[in-house]
Design a protein around this nucleic acid. Structure first.
Length: 197
DNA sequence: TGAATGATGCGCT
DNA sequence: GCGCATCATTCAT
Protein backbone atom coordinates (compact mmCIF):
# COMPACT_ATOMS: atom_id res chain seq x y z
CA UNK A 1 0.00 0.00 0.00
CA UNK A 2 1.35 3.40 -0.96
CA UNK A 3 2.19 5.78 1.87
CA UNK A 4 -0.12 8.78 1.86
CA UNK A 5 1.37 12.24 1.84
CA UNK A 6 0.93 14.21 5.09
CA UNK A 7 -2.01 16.56 4.94
CA UNK A 8 -2.46 19.81 6.86
CA UNK A 9 -5.64 19.76 8.93
CA UNK A 10 -8.18 22.19 7.42
CA UNK A 11 -10.29 24.66 9.36
CA UNK A 12 -13.28 22.35 9.02
CA UNK A 13 -11.48 19.80 11.19
CA UNK A 14 -11.52 22.26 14.10
CA UNK A 15 -14.98 23.70 13.46
CA UNK A 16 -16.79 20.73 15.03
CA UNK A 17 -17.93 19.63 18.45
CA UNK A 18 -14.99 19.98 20.87
CA UNK A 19 -15.60 16.54 22.33
CA UNK A 20 -15.18 15.05 18.85
CA UNK A 21 -12.15 17.12 17.88
CA UNK A 22 -10.21 16.30 21.06
CA UNK A 23 -9.84 12.50 20.60
CA UNK A 24 -9.35 12.99 16.84
CA UNK A 25 -6.22 15.03 17.62
CA UNK A 26 -4.42 12.03 19.12
CA UNK A 27 -1.86 10.65 16.66
CA UNK A 28 -1.81 13.87 14.64
CA UNK A 29 1.36 15.98 14.39
CA UNK A 30 2.08 19.55 15.50
CA UNK A 31 4.56 21.41 13.29
CA UNK A 32 6.24 24.68 14.24
CA UNK A 33 8.36 26.46 11.63
CA UNK A 34 10.42 28.37 14.16
CA UNK A 35 12.78 30.60 12.22
CA UNK A 36 15.21 28.27 10.48
CA UNK A 37 14.30 25.26 12.65
CA UNK A 38 11.42 22.86 12.09
CA UNK A 39 9.96 21.31 15.20
CA UNK A 40 7.42 18.48 15.02
CA UNK A 41 5.75 16.19 17.54
CA UNK A 42 3.06 13.52 17.68
CA UNK A 43 0.12 14.45 19.92
CA UNK A 44 -0.53 11.92 22.69
CA UNK A 45 -2.62 13.82 25.26
CA UNK A 46 -5.29 16.54 25.10
CA UNK A 47 -8.14 17.98 27.18
CA UNK A 48 -11.44 19.47 26.02
CA UNK A 49 -12.75 22.80 27.37
CA UNK A 50 -16.27 23.52 26.21
CA UNK A 51 -18.60 26.50 26.09
CA UNK A 52 -21.56 24.84 27.78
CA UNK A 53 -21.64 23.71 31.42
CA UNK A 54 -17.88 23.81 31.87
CA UNK A 55 -16.81 25.90 34.89
CA UNK A 56 -13.14 25.07 34.20
CA UNK A 57 -13.17 26.75 30.79
CA UNK A 58 -11.46 30.15 30.73
CA UNK A 59 -14.45 31.49 28.80
CA UNK A 60 -17.00 30.31 31.38
CA UNK A 61 -17.44 33.83 32.79
CA UNK A 62 -17.64 35.66 29.50
CA UNK A 63 -15.27 37.30 27.08
CA UNK A 64 -12.19 39.19 28.23
CA UNK A 65 -9.05 40.40 26.51
CA UNK A 66 -7.26 37.27 27.66
CA UNK A 67 -9.68 34.69 26.23
CA UNK A 68 -11.03 36.57 23.20
CA UNK A 69 -9.32 34.20 20.75
CA UNK A 70 -11.54 31.37 22.01
CA UNK A 71 -14.59 33.34 20.89
CA UNK A 72 -13.23 33.74 17.37
CA UNK A 73 -13.22 31.28 14.47
CA UNK A 74 -11.97 27.71 14.82
CA UNK A 75 -8.47 26.70 13.78
CA UNK A 76 -6.56 29.35 15.69
CA UNK A 77 -4.03 29.00 18.52
CA UNK A 78 -5.03 30.13 22.02
CA UNK A 79 -1.87 30.56 24.10
CA UNK A 80 -2.04 31.74 27.70
CA UNK A 81 0.43 32.40 30.51
CA UNK A 82 -0.02 30.49 33.78
CA UNK A 83 1.64 30.17 37.20
CA UNK A 84 3.97 33.07 36.48
CA UNK A 85 6.28 31.05 34.23
CA UNK A 86 4.57 28.69 31.83
CA UNK A 87 2.50 28.86 28.69
CA UNK A 88 -0.18 26.46 27.45
CA UNK A 89 -1.24 25.88 23.84
CA UNK A 90 -4.87 25.29 22.83
CA UNK A 91 -6.58 24.76 19.50
CA UNK A 92 -9.77 26.80 19.14
CA UNK A 93 -12.80 24.73 18.12
CA UNK A 94 -16.51 25.26 17.31
CA UNK A 95 -18.04 28.00 15.13
CA UNK A 96 -17.26 31.71 15.44
CA UNK A 97 -18.95 33.08 18.57
CA UNK A 98 -18.77 29.79 20.49
CA UNK A 99 -15.89 29.79 22.96
CA UNK A 100 -14.27 26.37 23.21
CA UNK A 101 -10.83 24.83 22.73
CA UNK A 102 -8.66 21.76 23.15
CA UNK A 103 -5.60 21.98 25.41
CA UNK A 104 -2.49 20.22 24.13
CA UNK A 105 -1.00 18.46 27.17
CA UNK A 106 1.69 16.15 25.81
CA UNK A 107 3.44 14.95 22.66
CA UNK A 108 6.34 12.85 21.38
CA UNK A 109 9.06 14.86 19.65
CA UNK A 110 9.94 13.73 16.13
CA UNK A 111 11.70 16.59 14.29
CA UNK A 112 14.11 19.01 15.92
CA UNK A 113 14.92 16.63 18.79
CA UNK A 114 18.48 17.94 19.09
CA UNK A 115 17.20 21.42 19.89
CA UNK A 116 14.67 20.07 22.40
CA UNK A 117 17.32 17.98 24.17
CA UNK A 118 19.62 20.98 24.46
CA UNK A 119 16.85 22.92 26.22
CA UNK A 120 16.11 20.09 28.69
CA UNK A 121 19.29 18.02 28.91
CA UNK A 122 18.27 16.07 32.01
CA UNK A 123 15.17 14.55 30.41
CA UNK A 124 14.71 11.32 28.54
CA UNK A 125 13.42 11.78 24.99
CA UNK A 126 9.97 10.41 25.80
CA UNK A 127 9.53 12.96 28.64
CA UNK A 128 10.69 16.07 26.77
CA UNK A 129 7.17 17.20 25.89
CA UNK A 130 5.25 15.36 28.63
CA UNK A 131 3.27 18.34 29.94
CA UNK A 132 1.64 21.50 28.56
CA UNK A 133 4.20 23.89 30.02
CA UNK A 134 7.12 21.80 28.82
CA UNK A 135 5.67 21.56 25.34
CA UNK A 136 5.36 25.34 24.95
CA UNK A 137 8.79 25.99 26.42
CA UNK A 138 10.57 23.59 24.06
CA UNK A 139 8.49 24.60 21.05
CA UNK A 140 9.21 28.25 21.79
CA UNK A 141 5.55 29.28 22.06
CA UNK A 142 4.63 32.44 24.01
CA UNK A 143 1.93 35.10 24.13
CA UNK A 144 3.29 36.34 20.79
CA UNK A 145 1.81 33.22 19.20
CA UNK A 146 -1.66 33.78 20.66
CA UNK A 147 -4.23 33.98 17.85
CA UNK A 148 -2.02 32.37 15.17
CA UNK A 149 -3.98 30.85 12.30
CA UNK A 150 -3.41 27.08 12.35
CA UNK A 151 -4.02 26.86 8.62
CA UNK A 152 -1.09 29.24 8.04
CA UNK A 153 2.60 28.39 7.42
CA UNK A 154 4.07 28.92 10.89
CA UNK A 155 2.15 26.63 13.24
CA UNK A 156 -0.15 23.89 12.01
CA UNK A 157 -1.27 20.29 12.46
CA UNK A 158 -0.77 17.38 10.10
CA UNK A 159 -2.45 14.08 9.49
CA UNK A 160 0.21 11.50 8.63
CA UNK A 161 -2.34 8.72 8.27
CA UNK A 162 -1.02 6.48 11.02
CA UNK A 163 -2.80 3.49 12.50
CA UNK A 164 -5.63 4.30 14.87
CA UNK A 165 -4.72 5.32 18.38
CA UNK A 166 -6.01 3.36 21.37
CA UNK A 167 -7.81 6.20 23.19
CA UNK A 168 -7.99 6.28 27.00
CA UNK A 169 -10.01 8.81 29.00
CA UNK A 170 -9.86 10.38 32.43
CA UNK A 171 -10.83 13.48 34.34
CA UNK A 172 -8.88 16.61 33.53
CA UNK A 173 -5.72 17.49 35.43
CA UNK A 174 -4.98 20.54 37.56
CA UNK A 175 -8.49 21.99 37.78
CA UNK A 176 -10.63 22.60 40.86
CA UNK A 177 -14.00 22.89 39.12
CA UNK A 178 -15.55 20.66 36.46
CA UNK A 179 -13.89 17.51 37.76
CA UNK A 180 -16.93 15.40 36.94
CA UNK A 181 -16.33 15.64 33.19
CA UNK A 182 -14.22 12.87 31.66
CA UNK A 183 -12.67 15.17 29.09
CA UNK A 184 -9.00 14.21 29.06
CA UNK A 185 -8.02 11.95 26.17
CA UNK A 186 -4.66 10.24 25.77
CA UNK A 187 -2.87 7.53 23.82
CA UNK A 188 -3.05 4.46 26.07
CA UNK A 189 0.15 3.06 24.52
CA UNK A 190 2.35 6.16 24.82
CA UNK A 191 5.14 6.63 27.36
CA UNK A 192 4.94 10.39 26.91
CA UNK A 193 1.63 11.24 28.60
CA UNK A 194 1.96 13.74 31.44
CA UNK A 195 1.08 11.20 34.11
CA UNK A 196 1.99 7.56 33.81
CA UNK A 197 0.40 4.77 35.72
C1' DT B 1 8.09 6.29 44.04
C1' DG B 2 5.35 9.50 45.89
C1' DA B 3 3.80 13.65 48.57
C1' DA B 4 4.74 18.35 49.74
C1' DT B 5 6.34 22.75 48.47
C1' DG B 6 8.34 26.98 46.37
C1' DA B 7 8.85 29.72 42.22
C1' DT B 8 6.60 33.60 39.91
C1' DG B 9 3.29 37.01 37.53
C1' DC B 10 -1.09 37.95 35.62
C1' DG B 11 -6.23 38.46 35.64
C1' DC B 12 -10.12 38.96 38.08
C1' DT B 13 -13.04 39.85 42.61
C1' DG C 1 -5.29 39.74 47.63
C1' DC C 2 -6.25 35.09 45.79
C1' DG C 3 -6.27 31.55 42.60
C1' DC C 4 -4.42 29.60 38.71
C1' DA C 5 -5.61 24.09 32.55
C1' DT C 6 2.54 23.76 35.94
C1' DC C 7 7.04 21.98 36.97
C1' DA C 8 11.47 21.05 39.50
C1' DT C 9 13.19 20.15 43.77
C1' DT C 10 13.19 18.34 48.28
C1' DC C 11 12.05 15.21 51.76
C1' DA C 12 9.82 10.95 53.31
C1' DT C 13 8.84 6.07 52.75
Amino acid sequence: MAQKKPKKLPRLFYARSTLKVAPDLLGKYVIHQNGSATLAARIVEVEAYTSQGDPACHAARGQTRRNEVMFGPAGHAYVYFIYGMYHCLNFVTEPNGTAAAVLLRAAEGTDGLEQMRSMAPSKKDCRLLAGPGLFCRLFGLTNDDNGLDLTGPRLYLENRFENEVRVAKSTRIGISKGKENIWRFYDADSLSVSRVR
